[in-house]
Design a protein around this nucleic acid. Structure first.
Lengths: 232, 232
DNA sequence: GACACAGATGGCACTCAGTGCAGGCCGAAC
DNA sequence: GTTCGGCCTGCACTGAGTGCCATCTGTGTC
């Protein structure tokens, strides 16, 4: 749990990842044994499992750190506009992919073919989604369907991210992933923004009505105005 | 690929499931070996892997059939209102759970504790979600963001289902899961239905904002006020 | 009844992932 | 130098999953 600002960087770990991917790309994931990897890396078999709890983990060497970064980002963020915060958080995840395009594309081709790796990736994505949902649940606790909204919005944000990411990966890391994600998140935010009138993109709304019953608390009025104005 | 209307029902398969769950509940999933299961069921070890490709599969013995039923339902359904069709399809999945409450609750407790089973369940849920997304993608092909909408709606429907299912499972199968699912799907449909303001049924909005840009025709202001006021 | 045949089953040996344990190497502290 | 603690290695073991072949069982045929 030593939260150093920068890890001391273990070279053996990187050597294992490099050796593993070299073999995975040469002969495939299932045709490569852990013994092959450690032989190529020139280390003992036991050391592999010291750095990676399973053979699958070597394919996703940076997700653990990314997940920690993302939860830290959510933890330190302010409480207003939680949906927007989650959208910002998911951009951190995308950045981890786009920082190493070739590596991400290679991994994508692997996970697309190997069912075991796909299942592992699902569990990783699920942990991100859980982090979103937990964050949203806390902020939406008072609302009518707090946990339901939290779960659905978290799933929608994750799906939007995956959609943008996949199309970027399919283009061999050529397109603008960040713009695609912004667009996808715009769709999600438009669908879930405020309880009132999610406007379709065509016919941009230039007329919206405000009605406040006597006795409605002022914070609700303010919240409603804010969510209405922020929607574009 | 023999698509019989009703499978001949292999008794050995059921015996294996029964023996497995008995041992899983007694000593836990990871403390039970396949040898233990086949010994209790009185069959050969090789037969276990004939019926279940892995130890995890015995925990979800009916998902394969349910997935087939659901995709068949989607395949035979008409093309209008695809989102509603997907919502109907997910009810089939919930029904599979509610048909065997005690079994489902037992399995829920297992998957909650064992990470490997949770990962397996995620891959199952993912296949449902993919079926939704594929169905929606075909119907939304022409629309602006066809695949994006398909992915996001599919994820939202699956999340709504999981939310309703989990709360039902947590209540030991006592509550009304179907009603909870209807409610959750109502939220999702309200978020994604049509471009125009679908009002949520509960939480009657007592605060609504009106914004009218200069130059907006008066009849639009009047229409918006009228439709807002008449909503209850 | 003898025979052939196909499908289901059981037994055996094997690969490989993952773990526990004991020992060796090395740099730091004393 | 010595001791200590962390990192690495080798070894043996468990258990999941697979391939191969023998066996059993029911069925149809002559």
């Amino acid at each position: 749990m030593s939260t150093e600002p920068a890890a001391p960087k273990p070279p053996m770990r990187d050597a294992l990842v490099a050796a593993a991917f070299q073999l995975f790309l040469e002969r495939g994931y299932e045709q490569t044994t852990v013994d092959d990897i450690v032989a190529l890396a020139g280390v003992g078999r036991r050391s592999f499992f010291r750095y990676f709890p399973s053979k699958e983990d070597v394919v996703f060497p940076d997700h653990e750190r990314c997940l920690a970064d993302m939860t830290a980002f959510l933890a330190e963020s302010s409480d207003d506009e939680p949906v927007r915060r989650v959208c910002d958080a998911v951009r951190i995840v995308l950045r981890m992919y786009t920082e190493n395009p070739t590596f991400s594309v290679q991994r994508y081709r692997l996970t697309k073919q190997v069912p075991g790796l796909r299942a592992y990736e699902l569990s990783v994505v699920w942990r991100y989604e859980r982090a979103f949902a937990d964050y949203l649940r806390d902020r939406l606790a008072g609302r009518p369907d707090g946990t339901l909204r939290a779960d659905v919005v978290a799933a929608a944000v994750a799906a939007a991210h995956n959609n943008a990411l996949r199309s970027w990966l399919r283009s061999d890391g050529e397109g603008d992933a960040s713009a695609a994600l912004d667009h996808a998140l715009g769709y999600v935010q438009q669908a879930f923004a405020g309880p009132r009138a999610p406007h379709g993109e065509e016919e941009p709304e230039d007329v919206v009505v405000i009605v406040s019953r006597r006795g409605a608390p002022m914070w609700r009025v303010v919240r409603e105005i804010e969510s209405t104005l922020e929607q574009d």
